[in-house]
């Protein structure tokens, strides 16, 4: 094989490895994209840039929705289904959750906002979705959400739905644990 063929071969092999790693680079790139656009419930958690003009705030309806992921036996529901809030003002809501099994379990709630373009204007200052939830058998809890709507939210948005899906991650954690201390 001549020299230039060897060079072509080298470049092409590099390109193959490069593209393999690029496919993994797509994972953080995708997260960055979702954070920038506020898609898929990847909501920014900072308060930066929120306009607090509480006097000029307008009325907005927020609906709370809860889902159980498949095979998640907990009782999980919003304390109030609908709230009237004002933009630029802090509001609080709670979700009721109960571990109705006889085993200790860990769960995680994943949020999602509809319509998706309301996402970037909804700031959550405190949310149970930031942390894993552990409940002993039969234990129940009220999980808090503290949020604020940016006053710059477009006029066309009058209704926002904030939905949570709760996942059972008990075994998931065991698996990760096994990886951490098992090997």
């Amino acid at each position: 094989m001549n020299k230039s063929a060897k060079r072509t071969l080298k470049y092409l092999s590099l390109a193959v490895f490069g593209m393999f790693f690029f496919s993994f680079a797509l994972v953080p790139l995708y997260d960055v994209f979702c954070e920038v656009t506020g898609l898929n419930g990847k909501i920014s958690q900072s308060e930066e840039g929120v306009s607090y003009e509480s006097n000029t705030g307008r009325d907005l309806t927020i609906q709370f929705v809860s889902h159980n992921a498949e095979q998640m036996p907990w009782i999980f529901r919003p304390s109030e289904k609908i709230m009237k809030v004002k933009t630029g003002k802090y509001s609080n809501a709670t979700f009721f959750v109960k571990n109705n099994t006889d085993k200790p379990m860990t769960a995680r709630a994943v949020p999602s906002v509809a319509p998706s373009n309301a996402n970037e204007y909804l700031k959550k200052l405190e949310c149970f979705c930031f942390e894993e939830q552990f409940l002993a058998p039969g234990e129940e809890a009220l999980l808090p959400v503290r949020f604020i709507f940016d006053s710059n939210i477009p006029e066309s948005i009058n209704n926002v739905a904030l939905s949570y899906t709760i996942f059972d991650i008990t075994n998931y954690n065991d698996m990760e644990m096994a990886h951490h201390d098992g090997r």
């Binding site: 995708y30 979702c34 698996m175």
Partner: peptide
């Protein structure tokens, strides 16, 4: 035990479709 596509672990099934 990773969760590239598992929402419970912070992943996203839609990511699979994009890739």
């Amino acid at each position: 035990g990773t969760s590239f596509f598992n929402a419970a672990g912070g992943g996203d099934p839609v990511l699979f479709q994009h890739i």
